[in-house]
Design a protein around this nucleic acid. Structure first.
Lengths: 289, 289
DNA sequence: CGCCGTCGTTCGGCTGTACCGAACGGCGTT
DNA sequence: AACGCCGTTCGGTACAGCCGAACGACGGCG
């Protein structure tokens, strides 16, 4: 039988994306490192108080002694921290350091910060910036608007392309062929009753996105949540990511949608400008690879 | 631009805190995981464009094939990303995700955010929040003031206790005995010509910190940089961290120092309040363990 | 009070795997 | 063409990672 005995059951019910990168690292991979990374992921998805050693051992399906060695090694590098009493493991300061540096390594993050702040002030909504990772939107920066509610989607995580404003803004820059391929890969999972779950409806929606210059997520990812997003382009003209704002649906009268959409698109254009890329222009019917 | 580690065999001496966690993780440790973590650290300290596989292999002293397996495993989890062309490894989106979650797991981060923003607006300086990690200050949150210069000390990193305002604010809450022990461990390394490098001067300085309620870093960590810091306390009355503001020395007339110090101390007290801890009170001569 | 469950930790030994070295094809430069 | 360096593949072997058992401590429960 394959090394990991069949205990991938129990928990991880709430991890929606989960193509489970567990051992599927191709052929040349290091088992203990993969285990260690799974440990880190589990700790990250766990409660803030941390997890006990036994919890971890059960979660990754190894013996306590093995798990202890892994956790100790990670803790030695500050990746995990053991908070006393009754040693519980949570993410350590090295994780913060790496995350901060990683954001700095992406050129977009630092540059877009002031623009996001401005957009958040203007719209009174949480504004975020996503990069395009193989067609998936990944938010790397977030600025909360004044008095805006706290959303808990962490940065650095792949979001569903079809169920987010940033995702649809990105999809709208791709060809129908590319969209179909990506959708076949992901599956258009239903998130709420408003989620677009068939490709044809999605393509029609994207046509609208191209005409407006911004994408709308009307409770398609989470109930009661409304988002607006616009794509940004890099120096090579390819889509680099998207800017989006998020708020409570009830706080947004319909007549403000277009105004806010223009604001988002304008902010995205300014980011494109900084990158040396082209500003948005309606590519209706002429979208090329 | 981060300090380049001009590495090779005699490398990684630039981590100041560093009891060199390389392999010295005690007795129960996993070698490949330690190697993997060193890989991540090296990539983090490297340039934003990433490092080639051969670079990494040389840096950690393993064969290319081994390094490839390690890097592939890390990349499968998104910890590293290989940016084409001519595969170069940089930090991946998972690092961002983990960092974001780690900051969320620390109670202080989210709670102090609005206060830091307020302080940054008030002082026009970069304001940061540090937690106390074994006596070392570790910044976990940063809010740039309007028009403030960009400082590149990454979050999540241990700073020198004796050469930073946050560090001295924390030291000031400790007993002379504890301060001496910590100093013996770290060594009061000189950073600039203003750095306090002997323990007695430091203790005298800390006495002043206690009287003022805030600590001053007058170009002691970096030339031309001026900081003010004040300690914060948790629900158990123990020191939990510090708030500090950072700016260019030339921009700060002497007569504003006390005013800004009070502002920092006030902000720190409000954080303590949120934590359910005691606000600052002058413990002159009455601090005991 | 003694029983049982769980916790974290230690240690010895076997097996598997992580490591290395050699070899290959592709590039760019000499 | 020949050289260097790059990233990648593959097979063999020693070693290190993994397990299971055992221990002391803690905490409920009958």
């Amino acid at each position: 039988m394959p090394p990991h005995a069949g205990n991938r059951d129990a928990d991880n019910t709430d991890v929606e994306s989960a193509p489970a990168p567990e051992d599927a690292a191709g052929r040349y991979t290091v088992r203990s490192v993969a285990r260690a990374m799974r440990l880190v992921q589990i700790v990250a998805d766990g409660p803030a108080e941390g997890l006990s050693l036994s919890d971890l051992a059960r979660a990754i399906g190894t013996s306590k002694s093995t798990t202890l060695a892994l956790a100790r090694t990670l803790a030695a590098f500050g990746m995990l921290r053991d908070s006393k009493p009754g040693p519980r493991y949570a993410l350590g300061t090295a994780a913060i350091r790496l995350g901060d540096i990683a954001r700095g390594q992406l050129p977009l993050g630092e540059l877009s910060r002031p623009l996001l702040t401005e957009l958040a002030d203007l719209t009174k909504m949480t504004s975020r910036l996503a990069i395009c990772d193989d067609g998936f939107p990944v938010f790397i920066e977030r600025v909360d608007g004044p008095g805006s509610v706290r959303f808990h989607t962490p940065l650095g995580q792949r979001e569903m392309p079809h169920a987010s404003a940033a995702g649809k803004a990105i999809l709208a820059t791709m060809t129908e062929q590319q969209v179909r391929e990506l959708c076949a890969l992901t599956g258009l999972r239903r998130r709420t009753s408003h989620t677009i779950t068939d490709v044809d409806s999605l393509l029609a929606n994207l046509k609208l996105v191209r005409r407006n210059g911004f994408a709308i997520d009307d409770e398609e990812d989470a109930e009661g949540i409304f988002c607006l997003g616009a794509a940004i382009f890099g120096h090579d003209g390819a889509v680099a990511g998207a800017v989006s704002v998020t708020g409570i649906k009830g706080d947004l009268p319909a007549w403000r949608i277009n105004e806010l959409g223009q604001a988002v698109r304008h902010a995205a254009d300014r980011v494109s400008e900084i990158l040396g890329g082209p500003r948005y222009s309606d590519p209706s019917g002429s979208d090329s690879a």
